[in-house]
């Protein structure tokens, strides 16, 4: 009985080996090489600039040409005008990447960076009538809208771009290492509302929110706090908070400020106030250019 089993096994093995060798034979009908045909590396000046400034140093892919899979197809959006791309990217680098490099060192940004930065030319209009200025997704991608309308020489536009970039990067950070949402949510639990666009910044501050948009939920509240802190110098920030009439409003925002500072310190070993100073210095220089 054992012999029979052994013979069967040997026979099956021989057949299997024959089939395997047959499978390895060269098939003259197959085309040589890969069927995939990736485009050659671009020698376009803008693409080379992006490679030198975003791809090689930080491994951030900048998508400025239209890719329908990266945007919401239910919205009417369109790509940026090519002429506006480099100046915006220069500005983003100056107000976001360079200050973090200065305070946290280059490895920080190399590790905690979105792998894609998507630029969209048009306005992302919401059904409520508000505009979405930027989106951060899964800690991996930041999409910025309105690129065509940004004027690099306009102080208000630069201020708005700074807010958006620091807001979205705050999302990337907390999507990588979460902040304590429970503790955060206990500070102003009653003030969150889906109708945040019916509120204004000044009255929201009186209720303990740094902006009207911060009232949409805890995550946006956190990102708004970071963005508003990092786009002002220390004096301007303190003067903003000290100018709030309501004692409770001031207290709530100061409490959130402490949570932001301890989050940056404990999770990333960064002094948020040092970052604040660095961003202010870099931005002042950028504005002078």
């Amino acid at each position: 009985m054992d012999n029979i089993k052994k013979n069967v096994f040997v026979f099956l093995s021989v057949v299997a080996i024959i089939i395997l060798f047959e499978g390895c034979d060269e098939d003259p009908e197959l085309t040589p090489g890969s069927d995939l045909n990736p485009p050659p590396a671009s020698d376009d000046a803008l693409d080379l600039w992006i490679k030198d400034n975003y791809v090689d140093p930080f491994n951030i892919e900048v998508v400025y040409k239209w890719q329908e899979s990266l945007v919401d197809q239910s919205r009417y959006l369109f790509p940026p005008h090519k002429d506006s791309v480099q100046s915006i990217l220069e500005l983003i680098k100056a107000i976001w990447i360079e200050p973090y490099n200065q305070v946290a060192g280059r490895p920080f940004m190399q590790e905690l960076r979105p792998s894609q930065l998507v630029l969209v030319g048009g306005i992302n209009r919401n059904p409520s009538g508000t505009n979405t200025l930027g989106i951060a997704e899964q800690g991996k991608r930041i999409t910025l809208f309105n690129i065509n309308l940004m004027d690099k020489t306009n102080v208000d536009d630069i201020g708005e771009l700074m807010l958006i970039v620091h807001h979205e990067y705050a999302h990337i950070l907390h999507q990588s290492k979460p902040f304590d949402e429970e503790v955060w949510g206990e500070i102003t639990p009653e003030g969150y509302t889906a109708q945040w666009f019916n509120e204004d910044d000044d009255s929201s501050r009186e209720e303990g929110f740094i902006s009207a948009y911060a009232r949409s939920n805890e995550n946006e509240d956190f990102a708004e706090m970071v963005a508003q802190m990092l786009t002002r110098n220390r004096i301007a920030w303190n003067s903003l908070i000290d100018g709030i009439w309501s004692y409770e409003g001031r207290l709530d925002i100061r409490q959130k400020e402490q949570l932001v500072a301890s989050y940056y310190r404990d999770e990333y070993g960064l002094n948020v106030y040092e970052l604040q100073d660095s961003i202010y210095n870099v931005t002042t220089r950028a504005l002078r250019r």
């Binding site: 400025y64 040409k65 239209w66 009417y76 959006l77 369109f78 790509p79 940026p80 005008h81 090519k82 030319g121 048009g122 306005i123 065509n148």
Partner: peptide, 10 residues
């Protein structure tokens, strides 16, 4: 990239 045709999607 943006040109005249994109005005229809603005």
């Amino acid at each position: 990239t943006e040109g005249l045709i994109h005005r229809l999607s603005d």
